[in-house]
């Protein structure tokens, strides 16, 4: 995983709440067996509407998505994270994220920056009034800066550390392999096995 310290790019205002993962990437696009190429499916249904924000050339190169509350609800599909990242997004800003989506993002290296809905509204206004505005997301100081707007955001400390260091979860866990083995020896014998 690439380390993430700070990122500057074009902000995209997505004025929608409850953006579920079926909207981020519909099921018909989930059939690939790789982690790449999902950008075609990103917001596939909405992109058919020519007024949809990503069809505006000013935002086409966007890398910071600013969305309404309850982003990433529904299906656990990590393809939603890959689709956003394959398209070029490095950060999603929202006042509330669905748990599984947020977990998946942290593993794959997409930053989910949670800030107040008031700050989301300020960012929306700025990005709509001045399309193409550059936004800087700084994970070290946990701030989003765009024009006059400076917003603090939350991200849990452990995910922040892993992102800053670019660390892979599995290697971290395998450092504690003896603990896993010790636990296994204490499990009751009647616990079921699939074989």
């Amino acid at each position: 995983m690439d380390a993430f310290t700070t990122h500057t790019g074009t902000g995209v205002p997505l004025r929608r709440s409850n953006v579920d993962t079926d909207q981020i990437i519909p099921a018909e696009y989930l059939k690939r067996v790789t982690k790449s190429g999902f950008e075609d499916g990103l917001f596939a249904a909405w992109r058919k509407d020519e007024t949809f924000i990503l069809n505006d050339p000013t935002y086409a190169a966007g890398s910071i998505l600013v969305a309404g509350p309850d982003f990433g609800t529904g299906s656990s599909r990590e393809h939603a994270v890959w689709a956003l990242m394959n398209y070029g997004f490095r950060v999603v800003v929202s006042s509330r994220f669905a748990d599984i989506f947020r977990g998946n993002s942290g593993k794959a290296g997409l930053l989910t920056a949670q800030c107040s809905q008031d700050d989301v509204e300020l960012l929306w206004k700025l990005l709509e009034n001045e399309p193409g505005t550059s936004v800087t997301v700084d994970l070290v100081s946990r701030t989003i800066t765009a024009g006059d707007v400076v917003a603090a955001f939350d991200v849990d400390e452990y995910t922040r550390w892993r992102l800053l260091e670019g660390l892979d979860d599995i290697s971290l866990t395998l450092r504690h392999e003896p603990d896993i083995t010790a636990y296994e020896q204490l499990r009751p014998a009647w616990k079921p096995v699939t074989g």
């Binding site: 599909r77 393809h79 977990g103 998946n104 794959a108 849990d156 979860d169 866990t173 392999e177 896993i180």
Partner: peptide, 21 residues
Amino acid sequence: AFGIGTSEVEHVLATQTLPLK
């Protein structure tokens, strides 16, 4: 019992554990 993403699927396959808050 809970749903997980593909990175976590790999994590469980490799370690039979998950780091969870």
